[in-house]
Design a protein around this nucleic acid. Structure first.
Length: 417
DNA sequence: AATTGAGACAACCGCGGTCAC
DNA sequence: AGTGACCGCGGTTGTCTCAAT
């Protein structure tokens, strides 16, 4: 014989709580304390299920709840903890006094998730590591910690017009930095599988990596160590340097930044395990932009020099497009796609690029990409970075795709403010 | 002024672990 | 020891608000 049921479930009221019900519940709990949810509704004179009473008390009536908007500090904590813990709302809430798991969950779903997951991706599919990496670079944005790298210019006189017009703006001001960016409105995965598996990364694990730092030893350790199983070079390592956040130069360690791209358990984190499951996700920049972001057939390509326009659709660049800003177009395209949830369509991209955004210009060059890190006259840093990007250990000229891609993607993701 | 539809959020549902009987 | 309710949690749904048309 088990316990008696918590309530009869018949004749019980559902839906919104009235002020009168709130008052009854509050008075009862103030007099008798929390708990005994089964008997509470009857004793308090409420036609509610005990479960409903508990939820109402915990989420809205408890005295220690903090009302009002989520502050910028709280928001950053949520973002960082979510990057580490995934959808463990109660755990996240435990770090935010006065906030409930439900409140944080709702805030995440309505305010933050679309800012964080900037790219269309099927549910339950992980982002490529390079995007995860750059994404986390975005997350590290607030404060000084940010990998990339300011845009050289936004030539469009009304850059707000770049926004994808798929959603009406809300009245309230969003506190985040991406609300006015041209990625607004992008459909997001609801609960990426990777998040569910992202566990146990702690603040102490975080390594903020500055690619132009003079700490070349760290650079090499983090970036150029190949996976012993796959032979691939990863944007991340494991063991002591398991967590990687790309950030700019000023601040190399930010205690609140959490990044654990592998989602592995800290104590089990070996390099092999880190590589496991992501070995095929290390795409080149062209692959990412073409296959993952733009053209499902993968036939867009990156202009090698990067000096005159950003992306060149092979064999089909639109005539009559004057200095098109392909960065802008890229994100226009993504937003447009996500707004209807359909697959990426290169042709819609083309039509967008030729119908009103032609003169949006964000030219880029490697000088631009690196420029955010470098101060004028800082030749040592510049030399370090150049050799890091274009040389191997022997000083021979090579193409370090992963390094370059990470820098480029970070650059491109640093959208106009 | 009426309609539409997206955003925000309160509340419900269902599951799994725990614990009282 | 077995049963089944309780509890807490995360996912989902329902409802309200309000900007755009």
């Amino acid at each position: 014989m088990g316990r008696a049921p918590c309530c009869e479930k018949v004749g019980l009221k559902k839906g919104r709580w009235t002020a009168e019900e709130d008052e009854k519940l509050t008075k009862y709990i103030q007099a008798n304390g929390e708990g005994s949810w089964r008997s509470l509704p009857k004793n308090a004179g409420l036609l509610r299920c005990g479960k409903s009473c508990r939820l109402r008390w915990i989420n809205y009536l408890a005295a220690d709840l903090k009302r009002g908007n989520i502050s910028a500090e709280e928001e950053e904590i949520i973002i960082n903890l979510h990057a580490s813990l995934g959808n463990r709302w109660s755990l996240i809430a435990s770090h935010l006094p006065g906030r409930t798991d439900n409140e944080i969950k709702n805030y995440w779903n309505s305010h933050l998730s679309r800012r964080i997951y900037s790219f269309r991706r099927p549910v339950n599919e992980r982002l490529p590591l390079i995007i995860e990496t750059a994404k986390q670079g975005m997350l590290a944005k607030s404060g000084a910690g940010r990998f990339a790298i300011k845009k050289k210019k936004i030539s469009h006189p009304q850059k707000d017009a770049i926004r994808v017009p798929t959603k009406r703006p809300r009245k309230e001001n969003n506190t985040g930095d991406f609300s006015n960016s041209n990625i607004e409105g992008i459909q997001l995965p609801q609960t990426p599988a990777a998040e569910k598996n992202t566990l146990s990364s702690t603040i102490n694990d975080t390594v903020i990596w500055d690619p132009c730092a003079e700490d070349k030893e760290l650079m090499d350790l983090v970036v150029t160590t190949p996976c012993p199983e796959t032979g691939r070079v990863m944007l991340g390592s494991s063991g002591e340097k398991a967590n990687l956040v790309i950030c700019p130069g000023e601040e190399r360690r930010r205690p609140n930044s959490i990044f654990h791209p592998s989602g592995g358990e800290k104590e089990n984190d070996s390099f092999g395990q880190f590589c496991e499951g992501i070995e095929n996700e290390m795409l080149s920049f062209n692959e990412v932009m073409g296959k993952e972001l733009l053209d499902p057939d993968g036939d867009s390509s990156l202009n090698d020099e990067g000096q005159n326009g950003l992306l060149v659709h092979s064999g089909e660049r639109q005539s009559g497009v004057s200095s098109p800003d392909k960065t802008v177009d890229v994100f226009e395209s993504i937003g447009d796609l996500s707004s209807n949830g359909e697959s990426c369509d290169w042709h819609s991209f083309s039509s967008i690029s030729t119908s009103g955004f032609d003169d949006c210009g964000v030219d880029w060059s490697w000088d631009d990409v690196m420029g955010g890190h470098l101060e004028i006259g800082d030749e040592t840093k510049e030399e370090n970075m150049l050799s890091w990007l274009w040389e191997n250990e022997k000083g021979e000229e090579v193409v370090n795709y992963e390094k370059q891609n990470a820098m480029l993607l970070g650059f491109f993701l640093d959208l106009p403010q």
